[in-house]
């Protein structure tokens, strides 16, 4: 089972990203379970979204405590509490203009920065980094494939479909795959 945690600030689209990843993996034939708790979440407060992916039906209904892949919408959220949710050797894709060495990490985590903001700007997406980060995740983790990811973005983007797709593909092209323990 692949367990993924997405962390963002309320309003950045972490929950939407979780559902888009789930949709793409579902169309690839996987069983998925995507859930988030938002409670008192407001614009700007940290929000997590969790995703389980497996080849058989998913039965667990508890929090993910040892994710093998993490997606972080904002490097200021990359703190100890978040990194503790990462399992041994997990991959952490993070929206950041900083070098990997300049980012917080622990143990043998592989922290992969992607400058989502710059990619979004170049593709006329303003501050909306969602699709760029999904492209980066697809490239790094290898799941879902870029075609499934783009199909879902095309179906679900509320506006600027071409810009969203371009941002996703640009980020995908910039990153190398990293082996993820499943």
């Amino acid at each position: 089972m692949l367990e993924i945690i997405i962390l963002g600030r309320g309003g950045q689209g972490a929950q939407t990203a979780g559902n888009q990843l789930a949709q793409a993996l579902f169309t690839e034939g996987y069983h998925v379970q995507s859930f988030s708790t938002y409670g008192g979440a407001r614009r700007g407060t940290p929000v997590t979204s969790s995703l389980r992916v497996d080849t058989r039906p998913i039965r667990l209904r508890c929090n993910i405590s040892s994710a093998s892949a993490l997606l972080c919408f904002d490097d200021s959220l990359l703190d100890d509490a978040f990194l503790k949710l990462a399992g041994d050797g997990a991959v952490v894709v993070v929206n950041s203009a900083r070098e990997p060495e300049a980012l917080p990490s622990r143990g043998n985590l592989r922290v992969v920065p992607v400058d989502g903001k710059a990619i979004a700007r170049r593709n006329n997406m303003g501050k909306v980094v969602n699709s760029a980060l999904l492209g980066a995740f697809s490239a790094t983790v290898g799941k879902p494939g870029i075609d499934a990811m783009c199909r879902v973005i095309k179906e679900t983007a509320p506006t600027k479909v071409q810009e969203n797709l371009a941002a996703c593909r640009e980020a995908y092209g910039l990153l190398q795959p990293v082996a993820v323990e499943v």
């Binding site: 998925v32 379970q33 995507s34 859930f35 988030s36 708790t37 998913i58 209904r61 508890c62």
Partner: peptide
């Protein structure tokens, strides 16, 4: 059904 674990869990 339970909040979030079922109500907001997206599944097939």
């Amino acid at each position: 059904h339970d909040a979030f674990y079922v109500s907001h869990s997206v599944e097939p």
